[in-house]
Amino acid sequence: MLTLQVNGAAHQVDVPDDMPLLWVLRDVLGLPGTKFGCGIGECGACTVHVDGKAVRACSLPASLVGDRPVTTIEGLAEDEVATEVTKAWLDIDVVQCGYCQPGQIMAAIALLKSNLHPSDDEIDQAMSGNICRCGTYRRIRAAIRNVAGAV
């Protein structure tokens, strides 16, 4: 039995030790906002925050999370940076199919929280691990810059 702190609430889950956090979130806790894209850490679709840092839930065994707080795309309501980021995303219509976007947004929020005015290089470092098959990269970069400009 594991206890996970997800989006501010404690959840008891009975799952195998090696079960990645991604599947606990999606299939056990019913939080489907975090997406499955590759399962091997290549695409970033599964990005969530653990202790404020962007991590890939598909490659993080739930048993290694411990009592560190987990935040998913569903748990951003009160968050100021997150509000700015979603606004910036909507402002310039970043999304296409939208499947990669929860991961992109979680990666962008983590970046902006640690560095409110990232350079293009820093954006690349933080975001290039997130694949978008629809090719929304230009707009993602622009949206991040807009957030930086707005605050």
């Binding site: 999606r26 019913g30 489907p32 906002g33 975090t34 997406k35 499955f36 998913t72 795309i73 569903e74 979603t86 995303w89 909507l90 219509d93 970043v94 999304v95 939208g98 499947y99 976007q101 929860p102 947004i105």
Partner: peptide, 20 residues
């Protein structure tokens, strides 16, 4: 603006894979 934007940005848009 795209009508599907807000749900997709909030992570609440339901894709086939999200069905329960």
């Amino acid at each position: 603006h795209r009508l599907d934007g807000p749900a997709k940005v909030a992570g609440t848009a339901t894709f086939g894979i999200d069905i329960r």
